[in-house]
Design a protein around this nucleic acid. Structure first.
Length: 557
DNA sequence: CACCACATC
DNA sequence: CCTCGATGTGGTG
């Protein structure tokens, strides 16, 4: 049974769709599958693939039933068309949005630190690759890939540890430069962000292309880093566009409905932020591979709105999305956690010790960020790579290591014996110790902010008033960034995690070190360990989810 | 509320 | 040490 094509693809990793390496992608996939075989990781992936395949069968069976009982498809399509008309009416081409993205950020910084790396196939990371140089990418090496697999693809691959270098410093510099083009700049991780350059261009009477070219030149001259950028009427499109001419290039999507429709038409749905591997397969199962297929299959999607989210997808098909760029607002953190991966352990004492470490880490983090929480969630990953979570909610807010450990231990005991490779503790239902009175604080916040003057539109995926029968809805978009301001007078946002950190040098530097030390495995981002911070993505942007959504709407009438 | 799946950098 | 870590959203029961 040959491992299904889907499994091979899954093993190839999440960031496979990149252009550039095309040709021997199948050979690369073969090597990856070959190297993975027999490992527990592989077994787990195989199982997940199987589960998904089963889910798809169910889905198709449902679809068939629905189609069979729906004699008049044209009527369903007409309804979808009506929604499309309504959505088109909300298209807003008035704002010029830019998404900028540093090219292989970590790797580029490493080259600056060690010029001898220039032109070589190397990757930043430990057991997992954070970022691969473009030379390494030619061999199929990608971020998120296990190092031993990468070595199979590229035997002479050089591994560079990240850490000593200051990614945050470079990130901060770049962000500062970008802010010149839009003070409301919204960072989305340490190597990318969004800008609304409408005003910038208008005031100087220059084209968006020139402004972005100017920005990219400034970044290069001041940091020696190259950036790619996308220019489009909304965040979603801008993000997709920044990838178009990726290393060191920019792409400007014409601000014209027809051009946008043409652009979307053949765009693989996987390119849409929010559509990952699983969603891609589910959609593919009903014949949707490109955004244009969304239209072709609108009847099916309409019938299976709950499973797919019709309106959400129609927005994508139309290339419509939020065009609102705002800096991260108040801290709206939902959870704080810490976790650690280690060689599989079966010994209770050893596992408990790990739990202890993680609790200590979390306590330090919470103290630093001034949070407390009521729900403790224990997370563990078995040596089979299966992940489980167990949670318990308390009456009072916790933040002390002893308390965290006590609850975590209780939750853990119920699971033993087991052999695990990761233990994590997370707190949710948070309370901000810094701002005791949320109500008051929000009051001041809103009072001091001029209610956004130029309000751009944040797309609401729900079809507003719907008319007819069951309205279909999609998940709601949300946008909220996080973190950031709020600090007391003597704090400053950390350039990496954006958390407020006491400004005194020692504390600030210590925080930076800890913040950078962990880092990133994946690409860059995140704040790390102990410090949490900005949810990047999830935040400021669009990320809407469609998975299953849909509340049923109602309201009507 | 507990748990899970998915997504992103 | 060995296929990450941190965080968010939303669905399900």
């Amino acid at each position: 049974m040959s491992q299904s094509a889907s499994l091979v693809k899954r093993l190839a990793g999440p960031s496979t769709g990149k252009a550039g390496l095309a040709q021997d992608q199948s050979e690369i996939n073969r090597i990856i599958a070959e190297a993975s075989k027999g490992s527990k990781f592989y077994d787990r992936e195989k199982q997940k693939d199987k589960e998904l395949t089963a889910k798809i069968e169910t889905l198709l069976a449902q679809r068939d039933v629905l189609l069979a009982r729906t004699p008049d498809l044209s009527r369903i399509e007409a309804k979808a068309d009506q929604i499309l008309l309504k959505l088109k009416a909300e298209r807003d081409l008035s704002q010029t949005i830019v998404h900028f993205d540093l090219d292989s950020f970590f790797a580029s910084v490493e080259v600056l630190n060690d010029p001898s790396l220039a032109g070589k196939a190397f990757a930043v990371g430990h057991s997992v690759i954070s970022t691969a140089s473009y030379e390494a990418r030619k061999f199929g090496v990608r971020s998120g890939m296990a190092t031993f697999i990468a070595k199979k693809l590229c035997p002479h691959l050089l591994m560079v540890d990240h850490g000593l270098t200051s990614y945050s410093e470079m990130s901060r510099k770049v962000m500062e430069i970008c802010k010149r083009y839009d003070p409301q700049m919204c960072p989305a991780g340490c190597d990318e962000g969004y800008l609304n350059i409408t005003a910038y261009c208008a005031e100087r009477n220059i084209s968006a292309d020139d402004a972005v070219q100017h920005l990219r030149t400034a970044v290069y001259e001041e940091t020696q880093l190259t950036v790619s950028a996308g220019i489009a009427p909304n965040l979603m499109l801008a993000k997709i566009c920044s990838d178009k001419n990726k290393p060191n290039g920019q792409y400007h999507l014409p601000f014209d409905e027809d051009a946008i429709m043409e652009f979307m038409c053949d765009l693989p749905i996987r390119k849409i932020p929010g559509i990952g591997r699983v969603s891609e397969r589910l959609l593919e199962s009903i014949g949707i591979k490109t955004c244009g297929d969304i239209y072709a299959r609108r009847a099916t999607l309409s019938l299976m709105d709950k499973q797919f989210g019709l309106v959400y997808l129609l927005h994508k098909y139309l290339g419509i999305g939020s065009n609102c760029v705002e800096p991260p607002q108040r801290e709206e953190r939902k959870s704080i956690g810490a976790e650690r991966t280690f060689a599989p352990l079966s010994d209770k004492e050893k596992i408990v010790e790990k739990l202890h470490e993680v609790c200590a880490e979390l306590e330090a983090d919470m103290a630093e960020t001034q949070w407390a929480g009521r729900t403790v969630t224990l997370k563990y990953k078995l040596d089979t790579f299966e992940v489980h979570t167990r949670a318990k909610t308390c009456d009072r807010y916790l933040s002390k290591q002893e308390d965290l450990f006590a609850i975590g231990y209780e939750l853990l005991l119920a699971e033993l014996p087991m052999t695990c490779r990761l233990i994590g503790i997370r707190l949710t239902k948070l309370k901000d110790l810094r701002e005791p009175s949320t109500g008051i604080r929000r009051f001041f916040e809103s009072a001091s902010e001029p209610l956004s003057p130029s309000k751009k539109r944040k797309i609401d995926h729900s079809v507003s008033d719907d008319d007819s029968d069951e309205g279909n809805f999609i998940a709601k978009p949300r946008s909220k960034p996080a973190s950031s301001t709020s600090g007391s007078a003597s704090t400053h946002p950390c350039p990496v995690c954006e958390k407020q950190v006491p400004i005194e040098n020692d504390a600030f530097n210590a925080h930076l070190d800890s913040c950078l030390s962990r880092d990133a495995i994946s690409q860059a981002q995140s704040a790390t360990s102990t410090t949490p911070a900005s949810p990047q993505q999830g935040s400021g942007n669009l990320l809407e989810r469609w998975a299953n959504l849909a509340p049923k709407k109602k309201t009507k009438k």
